[in-house]
Computed example of a mutant assay.
Amino acid sequence: MSDTPPSEHNDPTEAERESSTVQHPRSIRSFVMRAGRTTEGQARALSELGPRFVLPFQDTPLDLAATFGRQAPVVLEIGFGMGDATAKIAETLPGTDFIGCEVHEPGVGALLKQIGERGLSNLRLVRHDAVEVMEHMIAPDTLAGVHIFFPDPWHKKRHHKRRLIQAPFVAHLVTRLAPGGYLHCATDWEPYAHQMLEVLGAEPQLRNTAEGFAEKPAYRPLTKFENRGLRLGHGVWDLVFQKRS
């Protein structure tokens, strides 16, 4: 969801930046569906690996232990774009299970391809609106963390209502975090970074783990997109908040 999440997470093109996965309030979508082009390799991954790693949307909570075949912390990622960083994080943290939401078919295919190439078993994908996934597929107090990297900043003032990080969405998201669970957001758009800081800081069930913005956690890799921006003098802001026990 990006520039959206950058999502090359991940190295986003402009189309990917407009393909994020969340709707809020119910009448306003924070993402734009793009047709995109699915490559032959992505299509093959969708066909061969999709049945195992893509979870169909359902209106009842997942049994997370049954989904992954083990008891482990589970992190939800909203808007993984093309999934490069998602795959790297899952590979770096094999003791954690990840559920990634993305509506963009080429991105789902690209991440499935990486799942196959890297031999990842701790990653499942849902190609659906992440708000509905949270509402129906995730039981309260179950997530160890939520990642929202480079959500679409919707630069124009008249589009700010489409931004994902707003108080009602955050209040709902917090109900899905287990006590002590964390919310990690990152953005390359400074005005949005300050709005995020204000919104997250006002949520009574969250506490900031830093004085203002956080240092980039080691598990979040720098993407090609981010490196390009840093070379041009652009900033990136991380926010890490924790649910109060």
Rank of each mutant, 00 (worst) to 15 (best):
D63C: 11
L62E: 05
D152C: 04
L123E: 02
P221T: 10
Q205M: 14
M134K: 05
F80P: 15
S2T: 11
A87G: 10
G50A: 00
R37G: 01
H155R: 08
L125M: 03
D59P: 13
N10M: 14
F169R: 14
E203Q: 14
M196H: 08
F80E: 10
P140R: 02
G50W: 02
S47W: 07
F150C: 04
P191M: 07
H24P: 00
M1H: 10
K224W: 03
C101V: 11
L177W: 05
A72G: 07
E211C: 08
P51D: 02
L93H: 08
T86H: 07
A90L: 06
Y182T: 15
G95P: 14
E198M: 14
L112I: 02
R70M: 03
R207A: 13
S30L: 01
R34G: 00
P221C: 07
M33T: 14
I115Q: 14
L55D: 05
R176N: 02
A202G: 12
V131S: 15
L111K: 05
G180Y: 03
V54S: 06
L62Q: 09
G212A: 03
F57Y: 13
S245I: 09
L111Y: 07
K157G: 03
R163D: 09
E18R: 15
I89V: 15
F213K: 00
F225A: 03
L123K: 05
V126L: 11
S7L: 10
R118A: 04
L200S: 06
F98K: 10
E91H: 13
G79H: 03
G212R: 09
P204N: 06
M196S: 03
P25A: 10
W154P: 11
D141G: 08
L55F: 13
T60H: 13
R163N: 11
D63Y: 11
G95T: 06
L239N: 00
G81W: 01
H159R: 04
I99S: 00
R176H: 12
H172R: 15
K161N: 05
N227F: 01
S27H: 15
S27G: 04
L200E: 07
M33K: 14
E91R: 15
Q195P: 08
N208H: 03
P106A: 04
Q242E: 15
D63Q: 07
H184T: 04
I89S: 03
T60C: 09
A85Q: 06
G41H: 11
